[in-house]
Design a protein around this nucleic acid. Structure first.
Lengths: 186, 186
DNA sequence: GTATCAATGGCAGGCACTGACATCACGCCT
DNA sequence: AGGCGTGATGTCAGTGCCTGCCATTGATAC
């Protein structure tokens, strides 16, 4: 019998999700989340550096997945092959959790500051991918442009995937988007 | 002779820029900015809803410029023509103020929350442009993807333009980036 | 001259977040 | 068994961003 109930972080995360979904991110205070999880506000901030962190805490795991996909990409891979490798990993990670992503996406899109943070997260992804392309010989600005375009496309496709009713796979949507993008840039 | 010195907003903006450049956005308090401008903190927040707003206050003017460029684009314009029209306007707006943009870009890139906000601003642009493309018959997701890709490309090109020493024009950089992007997406 | 207005100041307070210190079950060491 | 360090937590005071409310005061209109 331990002194404290275990899983404080997980209880905080669950409490936060419930409250955010019901009242919106901005109208939920850290104190309320802590109360619902049965801990003090101070403890909340020990587990999550900011209130936003509750929603973006899995960012490092996703980033690690991307890095791993990049490492498994050949040293002479063309940009498109690198993107496909990354998209394949992310799709495999997200596809089984569509319901979760729908909720999360709804919460994020209902709040401007969260939306900002979401964009920032994807910029980090884009930078990591750009570095991989630079390693493969692409000039820096060129690598940034193409990586950001690819990640941005993925983000939009992800949003429609998590929102709409069509069963089209994330990966298929991404491939189609890239092809259409090329056409539209002509 | 008015009761108050005029241009409180402008004095606040100037004071803020000086302090941000010297100490960094996060280490400057609203109180310090207000003191330097000779007004109270409360007055600062009457002119700028948030501290960030000082740096992004011109967003509406830029947005108006974009909207105007969109209106002057023919109803049957292809996406690429629309982007070129917008880029032309923005380049004309930015090109003469390169020194200002360099400072501003440095301040923004030195702070994560400002960087987030910057990304958000560009998402607003992308949405406006996407709507114009939807009006011209492009399906919504497709319009979002291509608009976001174009805006993102512009942002990266803008960053290198405001940073490096090359005299290559913003517009030329943008055109090149789009061409390269197409190649790299193959 | 009086009423109104517009720009500002002052103040109290809410919320996010931080640093410092106290508490206390648990488990290890002797 | 008894003492002791450890780790998760609580408490409290404080800073900074931001808001609402009300008072002040020169300028302007009538």
């Amino acid at each position: 019998m331990t002194r404290w109930p275990t899983d404080a972080a997980e209880r905080l995360r669950a409490a936060a999700f419930e409250l955010f979904e019901a009242d919106g991110f901005a109208d939920v205070t850290a104190q309320q989340i802590a109360d619902r999880a049965g801990v003090s506000e101070r403890t909340f901030f020990r587990y999550f550096a900011t209130k936003e962190e509750v929603l973006f805490g899995d960012g490092e795991a996703i980033l690690a997945e991307i890095v791993s996909a990049l490492h498994s990409s050949p040293a002479d891979a063309r940009p498109r092959q690198v993107f496909d490798a990354v998209a394949l990993r992310l799709a495999a990670l997200f596809e089984p959790e569509r319901a979760f992503h729908r909720t999360r996406n709804a919460v994020i899109h209902a709040d401007a500051s969260l939306h900002e943070r979401d964009l920032w997260k994807q910029e980090v992804w884009a930078n990591v991918i750009a570095n991989a392309l630079i390693d493969r010989g692409l000039p820096p600005t060129r690598a940034s442009v193409v990586s950001s375009a690819a990640v941005t496309s993925f983000r939009i496709v992800y949003a429609s995937w998590s929102t709409d009713r069509s069963r089209t796979r994330l990966l298929a949507r991404f491939s189609l988007a890239i092809a259409e993008l090329r056409d539209d840039l002509l």
